[in-house]
Simulated scan of single mutants.
Amino acid sequence: MQVQELVGIVPWTFIAQICNLFIQMYLIKRFLFKPINEMLEKRRAAADAEITDAEAAKKEANAIKEEYEQNMQEAKAKANEILESARKTATLQSEKIVKEASEQAAALKNKAEKEIAQEKKKAVNEVKGEIGGIAMDIAGKVIEREINEKDHEKLIDEFISNVGEAS
């Protein structure tokens, strides 16, 4: 009886299988791994380029952000300067308006005081004239004699001076 060998090594088959393995590895390396490695290298290069571009874009964005922040600070400073200038202008204008108003009020007051003084003088003169006339009538009746013009003026002046001292 013959025993069948389940596991056996046939030298020519073993050599053929080894050669077949080497040929398969060469073909796989040549036609499969090389294109796959080239494709992976292209992807790696594209990814590196995208990372480099992203870093450049990030740097550019940071530069733009810094410029924006600087412009905002300048704008705020300029706005504050404009506000301060407007406040100063408003203060100067209000002071000018108040000064003009006080000058006008003082001028009106002086004018009113002058008018009052003139009216007072006018009233005093009218009263003096009336009092002088009344005094002459009274004096003429009391004395019952005629007074000449010179005596008349003397009496009026004395009376007016007495009335002026009393008021």
Rank of each mutant, 00 (worst) to 15 (best):
E153H: 07
Q70T: 09
K34L: 11
N37I: 07
D137R: 08
K141D: 13
D137W: 02
D48A: 15
A123G: 06
F159M: 14
N148V: 02
I156P: 01
A77I: 09
E115F: 04
I138K: 05
K121N: 13
E158N: 11
I147R: 03
V163L: 14
V10W: 07
P35D: 04
I18L: 11
K120I: 01
E5C: 04
K109P: 00
E149I: 09
M39N: 05
K59S: 06
E153R: 04
E60A: 15
L155S: 01
G132W: 00
G8D: 09
E130M: 13
A107N: 05
K150R: 10
G132T: 01
T13L: 11
A45R: 15
K122M: 06
E38P: 02
E113A: 15
K150W: 07
A63Q: 12
Q24S: 08
A47M: 13
L108S: 10
Q118M: 11
I64M: 14
N20H: 06
L40G: 06
A139F: 09
A166L: 14
A112C: 02
Y26R: 08
A61T: 05
A63E: 15
P35V: 03
N162W: 07
L6T: 08
S102K: 15
G140Y: 07
K59V: 09
Q24F: 09
A77G: 07
K128Y: 09
M72I: 13
Q73A: 13
M72D: 10
R43L: 10
K96H: 05
I147S: 01
I15Q: 13
E66V: 03
I134M: 08
A56Q: 11
A46S: 13
I131L: 15
V127Q: 08
K42G: 03
K114N: 10
A56W: 04
E84K: 03
A77T: 12
E74G: 00
L27M: 04
E74S: 05
S167E: 12
I15R: 11
N37L: 13
A90R: 02
G129M: 02
I9L: 15
V142K: 02
A107E: 14
T13F: 07
I15C: 06
K96D: 04
K99A: 08
W12Y: 07
A86Y: 00
